[in-house]
């Protein structure tokens, strides 16, 4: 569930698409995306065979809602919505992981092996 406020929505379908994409981007950052280097500085995630991205098939159906608060600083009352979904989705996943593992903090991304190690250290 994601609720956003981008002011006046001129094209609501486009707003939904931007929020969908932003949520996916934020979940990707939290779960799988990470640039990694070897000790001697070689980039190890140089292609999409090694750098993971979130896929639509791995994500849930999003339920969207919005409030509309017009901004007074431009005549249309519009605010940006590009990538707005990332603002909430990344910390939502991080909070869920911390809650599930009962720890205060885990560095992103939350790859399976990292969580496995935390679980087995406890």
């Amino acid at each position: 569930m994601a609720v956003d406020d981008c002011g006046r929505q001129i094209n609501p379908l486009l707003v939904q698409g931007q929020v969908h994409g932003g949520i996916a981007q934020g979940i990707g950052q939290a779960m799988v995306e990470g640039v990694e280097y070897s000790e001697d500085g070689q980039l190890l995630t140089a292609t999409l065979m090694d750098y993971a991205m979130p896929l639509a098939s791995e994500l849930p159906v999003f339920e969207l809602d919005h409030t509309i608060t017009l901004t007074p600083v431009n005549p249309l009352g519009v605010k940006g919505v590009g990538e707005a979904g990332t603002i909430g989705s990344t910390p939502a996943v991080a909070a869920a992981v911390a809650d599930a593992l009962n720890v205060a903090h885990v560095d992103m991304p939350f790859k399976a092996e990292k969580l496995w190690k935390i679980i087995h250290q406890q």
Partner: peptide
């Protein structure tokens, strides 16, 4: 028969 794998999330 069955096949199970832990897949690399990228490739």
């Amino acid at each position: 028969s069955a096949y199970m794998k832990l897949a690399n999330k990228a490739s």
